[in-house]
Computed example of a mutant assay.
Amino acid sequence: MTETRAPARREGIPLGRIAGVPVVLAYSWFIIAAFTVLVYGPVLDRSNPALGATAYVVAFAYAVLLLISVLVHELAHALTAKIYGWPTQKIVLNLWGGHTQFESFTASPGRSVLVALAGPAANFVLAGGAWLALSTDSMGSVAEILTNIFMWANFLIAVFNVLPGLPLDGGRLVESAVWKATGSQAKGTVAAGWGGRIIVVAICAWFIVRPLLAGDEPDFSLVIITVLVSGFLWMGASASIQQGTLRARLPLVTAAGLATPAVGLPSTASVQEALRHGAAGTTSLVVYGPDGRPQGVVDPAALASVPPAAADSTPVTAVSFALAPGAYVPEWSKGQELITFLSQLEGRHYAVVDHNGRVTGLLSQDAVVAAITGKRQRTDKRPQGQNR
């Protein structure tokens, strides 16, 4: 019977490429478009009775103009990054506006700021262009309404995004300033994340708490928008704090430092030989094949269960569990390079080898995770058999 693999779930509608950058319209954008029509349509209808049902068409056009403004914003990020050779994977336009997704690259404080501020700068330019159009030309009512909306939308997008906290673009200013002062990007990211949380508190205080303290009833639609935006910003700020904290721990992630001592045994060895090498009970035993590459790890429990009379005739492979193909790392591996490599491997154990290919240690996935997260790993660091 042939297995049918389910097609990969698409995150949205591909809109093509602009300057070589793929652009995707996420399905969630239609939620904000519908919200804009339902909330802003009646407002336009009341303020411009002559529009009638057209007010809802204008409201939808408003949503499309917002989409275009966000697209220009993200393209400015992508094109500026392209100058510095930062590869852009794609631009996604979604419920929260949009984001530019980059592939791995090497950043610096100055370049990070320029790429971040390119987005708000583009929106300021669009707002300025709309302002000139309004001040120099006489337009019809609908065109004037949309141009006015376009001007204010871009102005507000630009101002909002330069606020000093992640995930907003202005947060990169804070991150880069702290990064430049301390030499640590991780500390900058954490500081900018806390800046984002402070912004959330300020927004909620201004739009919800302040009217309540003044005895006024906040506008319902404004409260909904405030809650949604604040929730998004809080999650982004918290993610930035977590990312910075994890990045700060990367220097602690070294193959040599996290591995337990281990020695290598040929796959032709017997249980008797394994018992001699592991007599102290503190050294892991890694089995290597005829080509000298690690291929398995001796399970201490299985090793101890072999009767003494059968120890010399039982091969060590009988009491071992297999390592994943290629699950061995140089003892000098560390940081992001080590984590990236391990993330591509299966299994929970990795042999550590020296410059000569000799086994010197055994690294566990638990030890790496504990070093990254700061959480304690279980006390027993000896390898346990895994499901085959």
Rank of each mutant, 00 (worst) to 15 (best):
Gly165Ile: 14
Val24Ile: 15
Pro294Leu: 15
Gln384Asp: 02
Gln384Met: 05
Leu228His: 02
Gly20Glu: 10
Val227Ala: 13
Thr260Leu: 14
Pro383Asn: 03
Thr54Glu: 14
Ala158Ser: 03
Glu74Met: 11
Ala324Val: 09
His277Ile: 07
Leu168Ala: 07
Asn387Glu: 02
Ile339Gly: 05
Ala6Arg: 08
Ala122Glu: 06
Val263Leu: 11
Gly97Ser: 09
Val201His: 10
Arg9Cys: 05
Glu331Cys: 01
Ser138Thr: 14
Pro211Val: 14
Tyr328His: 11
Leu71Arg: 08
Arg210Met: 14
Ala370Thr: 10
Gln185Cys: 09
Gly374Val: 04
Glu11Phe: 11
Leu222Glu: 09
Ala255Thr: 12
Ser112Lys: 01
Gly16Cys: 09
Ala177Asn: 08
Trp96Gln: 00
Trp96Ile: 02
Ala76Val: 05
Phe105Ala: 15
Pro325Cys: 09
Val125Lys: 03
Leu65Gln: 09
Leu363Gln: 05
Pro330Met: 01
Lys375Gly: 00
Pro14Ser: 12
Pro266Gly: 08
Ala351Trp: 03
Phe150Leu: 13
Val227Asn: 06
Gly296Lys: 13
Val287Met: 10
Gly244Asn: 11
Leu38Gln: 10
Thr147Glu: 00
Asp380Pro: 14
Ser267Asp: 05
Gly171Ser: 03
Gly52Ala: 14
Cys204His: 01
Thr4His: 10
Val58Gly: 06
Met235Arg: 14
Arg249Gln: 08
Gly188Gln: 14
Val223Ile: 15
Glu331Tyr: 05
Ala81Leu: 03
Cys204Pro: 00
Val319Pro: 03
Ile198Glu: 04
Gly347Ala: 05
Gly231Arg: 11
Ile157Val: 11
Ile18Met: 09
Trp152Ile: 12
Leu252Cys: 07
Ala63Thr: 12
Gln185Arg: 14
Phe155Pro: 00
Ile91Leu: 04
Lys187Val: 02
Thr106Met: 00
Tyr27Lys: 05
Asn356Tyr: 13
Ala280Cys: 08
Pro294Phe: 15
Val297Asp: 01
Arg111Ala: 07
Ile68Met: 10
Leu168Thr: 08
Ala239Arg: 12
Trp194Leu: 04
Gln295Gly: 12
Ala55Lys: 08
Trp206Glu: 12
Ala26Tyr: 13
Phe102Val: 01
Ser176Pro: 11
Arg111Lys: 15
Lys82Gln: 12
Ile145Tyr: 06
Leu222Thr: 13
Leu323Gly: 06
Ser112Gln: 01
Arg382Asn: 10
Thr136Trp: 08
Gly264Ile: 04
Arg388Gly: 07
Val223Ser: 10
Gly52Leu: 15
Ala324Glu: 04
